[in-house]
Amino acid sequence: MMASFCLFPWLYMLLVSLNDRPDFLGTQGSIGLSGGHYLAVLTERSLHFLDYLRNSAIVALSSAALGTVIAALAAFAVTRLDLPGKAAVLFFVLAASMFPQISLTGYLFRLMTRLGWINTYQGLLFPYVAWTLPLSLWLLVSCFSQIPKELDKAALVDGCTSWQVLWRVLLPVARPGIFAAFLLSFIAAFNEFLFALMLTTDHGARTVPVGIALFQGLHGEMPWGDIMAASIVATAPIAAIVALFQRHIVAGLTGGAVKG
């Protein structure tokens, strides 16, 4: 029952996307399976669905990669190096992760307009990196602090620089945590809506969630079959990630959250 509660909207999405008429529930017995909607969203250039998908993939992958690297460096500094005001930094970064996005968008919109970055990848990339950093930092700090300090002390005695300690000692051991941070940042960036809505104008940089939210029929009628087919194609990779890496995701979501 729990599984069906969680899955039924997605199954409904699948059903509608495969049906040649979205109103099959209203009109008795005219269920015809077809892949026409998939063909439409994948080949019809004017729908720009593939553009949205490409934009999302580029922005989400690069911001997750960049964000994870930056967070790993920072987590190393917080857990291993001498840093004045560590507690204050953690405090403010964690608090920053809970700021409402709307209070950033007004300023960001004007900033990106001034830089000429509206509707560009970098215009989304930089805010996304900043937006996902607090979560990754918090995750990686709790991951690094579980690794025994004796490991890097031994490496330091052997003459490693702190850079080598991070690269050769910590990163290999912390790989699951780093992967979890990457996955969570990727999902967060892929799902992000408000920044993408404000900072993009068309298929040049618009991401999938905004593309699907603004998807309209050309002739007034809502093309539900196409919308649902597009939704299936867009969420299939996410569903695959969840199925394959649920352990990492759960560990990431709860990393430290309940320890306090």
Binding site: A3, C6, P9, F193, W224
Partner: peptide, 27 residues
């Protein structure tokens, strides 16, 4: 557990679109 995670992982804008269809008047 993977089933339970699915609603969390898919973009809200997309799942909201499905809900829009679910609540649709005619069909």
């Amino acid at each position: 557990r993977a089933c339970v995670l699915l609603p969390w992982a898919i973009p809200t804008a997309i799942s909201a679109r499905v809900w829009e269809l679910i609540y649709g008047y005619g069909y």
